[in-house]
Design a protein around this nucleic acid. Structure first.
Lengths: 146, 146
DNA sequence: TTAAAAGGTGTATTTTGAATACATCTTTAT
DNA sequence: ATAAAGATGTATTCAAAATACACCTTTTAA
């Protein structure tokens, strides 16, 4: 059981970007340096976040990225749901693929579904703002002058 | 986000086996036929469940498998935890691999962990007995004479 | 007006781990 | 002795994720 690295990276990109204020912008290069993730990947992740409307990017010299909406409007649960598209925890979750004969009478899927619901319920209690509440500490860890 | 097919298969093997009573035993061949999973795989899964002490097997003619303990003592949560060994949802969960600089001050891992806890809390409310409460229906779906 | 800085985009390759298959062995009741 | 059952180790296939490569577009400051 695991999440994709892209989900992890996306969250980290948002955390970094969330630390910029006002007219400040984050640059892909910066993010790539801080987290030691190649620029290519960061670029992909950023691009994706732009498409999802979470990040706003400006091209050209002096450009960069910033959050497209306030951090408290970016919900962690929604984000993870979005980024992880595939939640077919059991074969029978995917109608197209399933060929388990007992699935019509099988309680397992309900149990797993209920558990998955609980998982997201917790995540939905948090927003990006909660993840950057300790702004100074994070900046220090990143080696950013404050 | 997904579970391994082996987890799925294991649960299904237990469900099948749990429908046998008294001196009755399930045979790998039977399970393989009902679920349409090759005998090879069922064998692996069964072997694993035997090692985990959930199933008792008898070799030789007239042999087969049965639960090693009553169905209500087989907890779904524990089972899934056991079968899915790897819960490194984020890179920073795995100390050996992690190289995210912000991890000492990052709240994300706590949030994800809490969610994972909620996931298992739900699963732990169920045992194999709950999964086979509708014994007759399941047997009918499997095409077993009752 | 052009060079540098920034992001955009499509495609290809590598890696990993799960899923599956193959081959052969051991045990035991009849 | 033999057939029915499970045991076990190894090899192969496959898919998806992760990563890398190449090249494009936009913007602005020198």
């Amino acid at each position: 059981m695991n999440l994709k690295k892209y989900t992890d990276y996306s969250l980290r990109v948002l955390i970094f970007t969330g630390l910029k204020h006002g007219e400040e912008r984050a640059r892909i290069k910066e993010i790539s340096d801080v987290y030691n993730i190649s620029q290519e990947h960061v670029r992909k992740v950023v691009h994706d976040l732009v498409k999802r409307g979470l990040i706003e990017s400006t091209r050209g010299r002096g450009g960069g990225i910033r959050l497209a909406k306030p951090a408290h409007e970016i919900n962690v649960g929604m984000l993870v749901r979005d980024l992880e598209q595939d939640f077919a925890l059991l074969e029978c979750f995917d109608k197209g693929v399933n060929h388990c004969v007992i699935s019509p009478g099988c309680s397992l899927k309900h149990v797993i579904n209920k558990a998955l619901g609980a998982f997201f319920k917790v995540l939905e209690e948090y927003t990006l703002e909660d993840l950057i509440h300790n702004e100074e500490e994070l900046k220090a860890l990143m080696g950013l002058s404050t």
